[in-house]
Design a protein around this nucleic acid. Structure first.
Lengths: 340, 340
DNA sequence: CTGTTAGCGCATTCAA
DNA sequence: TTGAATGCGCTAACAG
């Protein structure tokens, strides 16, 4: 693989001149530039970013650490990141932790080794350790979608507590008296916050805390299925199900179907996160939709601002608005009569 | 950020000794090793892979270029790649082309700049150009899932033609006389091959070529929806739909539902690629399932073998078996009566 | 077992 | 407008 010196030799100039051509310096005569470009083309020369980054002490690369790369919510968020990063001349490395703190820790080490310029993190848990680790290595980080215990960090997310509160209120307003909350891992802030919103709505109602039916499980279809089964086994059987994310909703829906229950005829479902077209088969869920793409954009903008040298002591905490979209899954009037 | 020299100084040894400790050389006295490791811990030293790769002329990094990172078929395949690569001490960079040759070309340039050791490519089109580009830069490549015009390249895929043939035969055996083929982009080999298998089955039947109803569109739910709508507008209306991939199947299903048709009561659907649990809402599709995870594994093994110095002139072409899974979506006896 | 020398490919600094 | 020297952080090759 040819180097900058090969090009220089072929063009009859010094390596430095070639470097100037590559980096679009203006202090180059048109003639030499032409010769150098010809040599580059003839040799099929491609600059070595490793050497360049070593010298420049910067990689023009960001990392996006996702807890579940198969979830359309996160891939949409990733597009937001990608688009903003690219415009600014940055590459993005996608990393997947599968909600594992161990995996996340390993990924972080690799990223520090690779000297990425910045990290966008959807943390696998609320521990501030990963943020501290990156800070120790002077790598700017923005936390996405979830909270971490530490507060001195830029972050972008929606208000999960408020969203859950509104969805629960919606169900209560329809007359539901027994609502099962199928939440995510207890260590993940969104799961905890959505439970909190659910609790607040119940507490404010005439039902009180004794009506709570809270389940915790992974943010996956399998988790939703298992939690829905557990909920169905209880007496009285819930007339409504609150899924803490899109995948849990899908799994719960399957479990209900297998139990012979129809949505929305027999039971209601509401969920956090909208489902993309690809999974939006009947029925259509009532959801608290988060602006995934915009979350990615905003987070990347914050990160780039830090890389650009912004250094205020206090950190940005962007809370984006969610949107409650009411659809068929919560519309069955007869659901209540079916509850035992 | 501390360097190997900082560690060396602190431990009172040379940089070389530190390097030996990091790379687990055995020619180190236990005492020195201990001192060095202490210094590493105290400084929070993390080796710089850029410098290391520059020196070693190798990055221990593979790239996986996917045509659609949101499709579960490809993410599953990605896990297969990841698992094998990791075991061998390689990192994997995921890249997404969205079926765009332009995007693919840009990604390739970036990867060459980053000097990845090898590339696993699900090509956006059949052009051999990307393979030639990588070969020119001496970067081993394995083509996945799809064919490219050039043959001198390692590749792993399923036999799309045979799978499509069998699925079509299955529909013909059920008595369907009008089967719409909703395929992917005409430039993608899997789309073309699946059409070919469909054609062969029809040609062998008493229906002949005049019964062909072939549509081309993107491998997306939106594409499936559009093609299904177009097919429904034809006379006679098809009684069965063959979706060339999972996403097309989902979109087609939606279109049929919106047209007031039930699956499998009114029309049949068969598809290539199984849907994962997350999207497997009713009904369950009859499919030709490809071993996505294993495809990723095998491809990575081939790639690692090349990196390990394997250099036979001829290339490996692995054709993995698919599995026909018959489920409810193709079971309606009354579908035929409903056809006009 | 440990240290010294040298160079991977590139761009900053300083001269010319 | 161009070039020479230098060093980014690391490790192979060789000495000791």
């Amino acid at each position: 693989m040819s180097t900058i010196h090969d090009v220089a030799e072929r063009a009859g100039v010094s390596a430095m001149t070639v470097s100037r051509v590559i980096n679009r310096s203006n202090y180059i005569s048109p003639k030499t530039r032409e010769r150098v470009e010809a040599a580059i083309a003839e040799l099929g020369y491609v600059p070595n970013t490793l050497a360049r980054s070593l010298r420049l002490k910067g990689t023009k690369t960001l990392a996006l650490i996702l807890s579940d790369i198969t979830n359309p919510f996160f891939t949409t968020l990733g597009r937001g990141v990608q688009d903003v990063a690219r415009t600014a001349g940055f590459n993005v490395i996608f990393c997947n932790t599968d909600e594992s703190e161990t995996e996340q820790a390993e990924q972080l080490i690799t990223l520090v080794q690779k000297r990425v310029d910045g990290v966008l993190l959807v943390p696998a848990a609320s521990s501030a350790e990963p943020v501290a680790y990156l800070k120790k290595h002077k790598i700017p980080v923005v936390v996405l979608d979830r909270r971490v215990d530490d507060c001195a960090v830029d972050s972008v997310r929606c208000d999960s507590e408020a969203g859950a509160y509104q969805l629960t209120r919606l169900l209560l307003g329809l007359g539901h008296r027994c609502i099962a909350m199928l939440s995510g891992p207890a260590t993940v802030s969104t799961a905890a916050d959505r439970v909190a919103g659910y609790r607040r709505a119940l507490a404010e109602s005439d039902l009180g805390a004794s009506a709570e039916r809270v389940f915790h499980g992974p943010y996956t279809p399998a988790g939703g299925r298992a939690m829905a089964c557990a909920a169905l086994a209880q007496h009285p059987r819930p007339t409504a199900f609150f899924a803490a994310n899109n995948f849990i909703a899908v799994g719960a829906y399957q479990a209900l179907n297998e139990a012979g229950l129809s949505v929305p005829e027999d039971v209601a479902i509401v969920a956090f996160d909208d489902l993309p077209l690809s999974t939006m088969i009947e029925p259509v869920f009532t959801v608290a939709a988060q602006p995934a793409y915009e979350m990615g954009q905003r987070a990347t903008q914050l990160l780039l601002a830090r890389l650009g040298g912004e250094e205020p002591a206090d950190c940005h905490e962007v809370i984006l608005p969610f949107e409650i979209i009411v659809r068929r899954s919560s519309s069955g009037a007869q659901q209540l009569a079916n509850g035992q």
